[in-house]
Write a protein that binds this DNA or RNA. Sequence first.
RNA 1: CGGGAUGUGGCCCAGCCUGGUAGGGCACUGCGUUCGGGACGCAGGAGUCGCGCGUUCGAAUCGCGCCAUCCCGACCA
Length: 578
Amino acid sequence: MRYSEMFLPTVREVPSDAEVISHQLMIRAGMIRKLTTGIYSVLPLGYRTVKKVEQIIREEMDGAGAQEVYLPAVQPAELWEESGRWKFYGKELLRFKDRHNRECCIGPTHEEVITDLVRNEVKTYRQLPRNLYQIQTKFRDEVRPRFGVMRCREFDMKDAYSFDADEKGADLSYEKMFKAYTRIFSRVGLNFRPVEADSGNIGGAYSHEFMVLADTGEDALAFCSACEYAANLEKAEIAKPAALQIDPSQFKALETIHTPNVRTIEEVSAFLGVTPQDIVKTLIFVADGKAVAVLIRGDEEVNEAKLRNFLGADAVELATDDIVLAATNSPKGFAGAIGIKADVYADYSLMNRVNVVMGANREDYHVKNANLGRDYGVKAFADLRIVKESDSCPRCGKPVRFARGIEVGHVFKLGTKYSKAMKATFLDRDGKEKFMIMGCYGIGVGRTVAAAIEQQHDAQGILWPMSIAPFHVIIIPVNVKDENIAKAGEELYRELEEAGLEVLLDDRDERAGVKFNDADLIGIPVRVTIGPKSLAAGNLEIRMRKTGEMKTIPVKEARAFIKDLVKGELKSLNDPNH
RNA sequence: CGGGAUGUGGCCCAGCCUGGUAGGGCACUGCGUUCGGGACGCAGGAGUCGCGCGUUCGAAUCGCGCCAUCCCGACCA
């Protein structure tokens, strides 16, 4: 491709509305332009990289036995009503009516469509397993799109769905996808890590997220400093402490104390001269419409995802003031477990605690020396809190560490959630009708591209891995008005294209500095400079974008040298053991 | 949905407080010089100052309303 003919509008200044580096660089490098909030056009340079990522995904999905399909973006409401998600999906689902007044939506994901397709065609265990995937435009009407293509409303996603006859098969399908994802992100050249994850409202029992490690990542991860354990913070477990024998003789007498206008943990600990660890925080939540109380140590935070999973609820949120009043007979700030009108659950942090402070369920009063069994009861103890730096690994007990990551892929075991709701059944070998066991597997294509930039850039611009670089090589004839230089550039361009490389020839009549800066910005891995002095000596200069390493080589050897360079890098990225 | 900020040629921004003929840099067009890390000179083109209403002799500037965008929070595969 000739630069002079390419639609490649680079920008010198940093766009004012771009927060993160990948967003800034994608705009500056002429990869994307914003159309409206959370919706972007992809320009030629950006699309070249997108297509490369898609190609890697296709090769690995096909290699893992999945088959590509192309499903509709617009979907009828009936399917969503069948799965029950028409009600639950909320405002993120973009809904509209067609001319016949039929309710429709633009697919934010495709479980319903694929389940409908497969239930109509697959009737027997002989047709299983199947794994179908597509690369489709999704629309999720995010509350707050941000960070460019990292969190936008319209985006391309690879989504795969597996259907199996039994659990064993489903496990195998999951494992195949897990391995394929590992290969995909390795080939894309990312530093990533699979972590255990909460499955959110897609549903299902078990899932892993593939996280690209980056400080700007939206997700917090906890991982073990010693073993392989890694999890999203919202999922990261805390081991159950051993229950000790508590001797009731150490229970002190329960006291009720006047604590006027003392509500928060800080206020209570200051007022009573105790530490936050001595206080029990009582939080009222509403789980699927029902009030529940959660007890937790004063210095800990409740993890709502854990609570939701523990209760098996679809939705959990902090209770409003009127619900708190109904459950505790007092305004916010004085809730406690004694006599509360709600089911009470306690976090593990409260196991074995005696003589604690908690709200008295009476305005301006707290109690001291409350004890489990004597003064209050709990329905169950559970792991309900957010992991902290001081916690230890739930598997091996060593210290946990934290990092931030960008979720680029997610694999789920769905089980029979959708096949049951939508009656996707088959006849098994024993002649019995059974529900298919499903899995679903997503990769955010644009987000993967953005994550690659987030992870690999410098002050000058992008540092593409060879496998997803929009071009392998950029040739810069320093002065196109110099006939010898221009000619040498054209010749090398032709030779390298013939050799099967993707080459951008910067044939613009621009000053060298402009060309160098653009080349650095758009991040082409190999730069070939053709200048008057070296050319007169029969040489060219080759510079590696990532390392800045420079080599002068004879023009005659250029073709073979550059070809080996590019093919060598591609090979090492594509080698799963690299 | 709550809090904050911003809207001025294609882009980045000044001007607004203290009302009086709309500016700079980048980009763009032409000519000349220059030519290995974002050149220089000269000459040009391009803006109903987000929209509406009001105050005023006069509004980018003051007031009210609306819209949009961005940031923080809530929320979120």
